[in-house]
Design a protein around this nucleic acid. Structure first.
Length: 568
DNA sequence: GCCGTTTTCGGCCCGACTGTTTTCAGTCG
């Protein structure tokens, strides 16, 4: 028996109870119990007090005992016998929740999507109390759409969508200010929708203009407080716009940034002090509503530091609030150590990249073009690299406000050898090693390749260590705990590639790496000037792993960087 | 079902919108 099984059992029980239209708080109790086990870092064998945990009581405890003693849960078995499996997909139909499903089943014997479709078509549903013609039509419509609607979209796709919506919002004069909220603002890897907070005195006008300028496929809901639409932007995506007054902005932004669990925890905290949080402000004991100029002021009102959106997750961030001051912040970053130029597959010259980094106020940077194995990227031969080194050294003389270091992003070849000899590597300041080929090798082969790079005394860092593309490609499946152990042993940096396509290493691995005492570099891997701006989202992603400022080598002052990182 | 320095009963975050009602239930986020 392992923890995962217990968690899954709780979730299944909750699901079946939902289909039965059970008391939502009872359902919530099982979900909460699952969450308690999920967030506890210990393995099952390390938890001798599992029945004592807050959130585990008589009912949930009995399930755990059942699972431990018999390997199965009587409660779940009973539920599985009682509830037809065909009902489960019905929860995916928008507009259908546990109560309505239970009613449909009781009144009409609905036990699957198909039987619901038939009942709608023969107009039986609209005859039920609480249901009507419109509901029946909507259900039929949603059943048709079932499965065609896209699930969550990866952050890099959401980023493009957000940018194009923001362009439209800027053009509407009735909007005084706005902000994206929701999971994108929290730097989540995947989002199921996009949320915007809009300050306006004329919500109806703004709503009509939005419906005009956006590629609206369907209007889900529209009132004076919000507009919900389905947009057709390369993919179909749900978008929510909330209209608030200027005074309500900070509270609304906090509320619609979430996460849900974070909000619940904040509201419980307020409640314990006799106050009530809503998206419009904080209702005090005397019934008056206090609003805030900024989210900072909102948190300060509850004696909390500003909790960055990326950290707003399961509510535990509120208990860990005193750690936040020591975490890496975008403004701590002093340099970017992974970028490409026209020498390989980048779009801008070295000089243009340097100017762009100067404009960002960086004190140092590393140019890291590809190496000759990567022919598709016009990788540098040893000769061209030596020419590039000369050019960088000369260019560096021109600037006294930034230090430009010579680097490379060297391929680790399929046979485990490196693309350049040590003689050449030792002429460089900073050597990145990375895998761009033969992802389908066995884990042993992949690890041999990584080990070869880590053992090399001239290698500084492993870039995008797993090779994943968020929401699209798994990568080459390295044994990451082993990789972290080696990085520590050979004193190498592991990258958090801040490009939203990658976010590599992922959060859980970053936590492991930091705990192991491994240094992390957050880089943009920019192939163009504007991509240098990805540092911001990269850092915010890193905050999800509670990366401390000192863990992230990009925050180190130039002198420390030279002393501890640059090869002489 | 779980919880409790006001509690072992009565709460459990809060509000918008839709469609059904004729004041509100259900769903959603």
């Amino acid at each position: 028996m392992n923890k995962k099984t217990i968690i899954r059992t709780f979730e299944k029980i909750a699901l079946y109870m939902e289909l039965l239209g059970e008391n939502p708080f009872k359902i919530g109790a099982f979900r909460k119990a699952a969450g308690v086990l999920e967030t506890d870092a210990r393995s099952l064998s390390e938890m001798d007090d599992i029945l004592e945990l807050k959130g585990i009581g008589k009912g949930t405890g009995a399930v755990i005992i059942d699972l431990m003693e018999k390997g199965e849960s009587d409660l779940l078995k009973e539920l599985e016998e009682e509830v037809p499996k065909g009902l489960i997909p019905l929860l995916k139909v928008p507009g259908l929740g546990g109560k309505r499903i239970a009613k449909l089943r009781k009144a009409l014997g609905i036990d699957s999507v198909e039987s619901l479709r038939a009942a709608c078509e023969s107009n039986e549903v609209s005859k039920l109390p609480g249901f009507g013609k419109k509901t029946e039509e909507n259900l039929l419509h949603e059943i048709e759409l079932l499965g065609t609607r896209k699930g969550k979209l990866p952050v890099w796709q959401i980023q493009t969508i957000v940018a194009s919506i923001e362009e439209e919002l800027r053009e509407i004069p009735e909007i005084t200010r706005f902000s994206v909220a929701g999971s994108f603002r929290r730097a989540e890897e995947m989002s199921s929708d996009v949320d915007f907070i809009i300050v306006t005195e004329e919500p109806a006008t703004v709503r009509e203009k939005l419906l005009e300028v956006l590629p609206v496929e369907e209007t889900v809901a529209g009132g004076d407080a919000k507009l919900s639409v389905l947009l057709d932007m390369t993919d179909l995506v749900d978008a929510d716009f909330r209209f608030v007054t200027d005074a309500q902005f900070a509270s609304a932004l906090h509320h619609f940034t979430g996460s849900k669990d974070h909000n619940v925890k904040m509201r419980q905290l307020a409640k314990s002090k006799g106050m009530k949080i809503s998206e419009y402000g904080v209702e005090l004991e005397d019934g008056s509503v206090k609003t805030f100029d900024t989210e900072e002021a909102f948190f300060a009102f509850f004696d909390l530091p500003f909790i960055p959106p990326s950290l707003r997750k399961d509510g535990r961030e509120i208990e860990r609030a005193q750690e936040i001051a020591g975490l890496v912040k975008p403004e701590d970053i002093r340099g970017d150590f992974h970028m490409h130029t026209t020498w390989s597959d980048g779009g801008y010259s070295i000089r243009e990249m340097v100017e762009a980094c100067r404009a960002k106020g960086y004190s140092h940077m590393v140019i890291t073009d590809h190496t000759h194995y990567l022919k598709v990227a016009n990788g540098l031969t040893p000769e061209r690299l030596r020419e590039q080194i000369a050019e960088i050294r000369q260019l560096n003389e021109e600037f006294d406000d930034i230090e430009v270091f010579c680097g490379t992003e060297m391929d680790i070849l399929p046979d485990g050898s490196l693309d350049f000899d040590d003689d050449l590597l030792q002429e460089l300041d900073f050597v990145i090693a990375s895998i761009h080929s033969n992802f389908n090798q066995s884990q042993e082969q992949i690890m041999e390749r990584l080990h070869a790079a880590l053992k090399n005394p001239y290698v500084t860092m492993i870039a995008h260590p797993t090779g994943r593309i968020v929401g699209q490609r798994e990568g080459y499946n390295p044994d990451v705990p082993q990789l972290i152990e080696w990085a520590k042993k050979y004193d190498k940096i592991l990258e958090l590639n801040g490009s939203p396509h990658r976010f590599d290493l992922a959060t859980d691995y970053l936590v492991m790496a930091q705990e192991a005492g491994v240094k992390i570099a957050i880089n943009t891997d920019a192939h163009a000037i504007d991509q240098l701006d990805l540092m911001d989202i990269g850092v915010r992603y890193g905050q999800k792993a509670w990366l401390k400022k000192e863990t992230v080598v990009n925050t180190w002052p130039l002198e420390q960087f030279i002393r501890e990182i640059i090869r002489k």
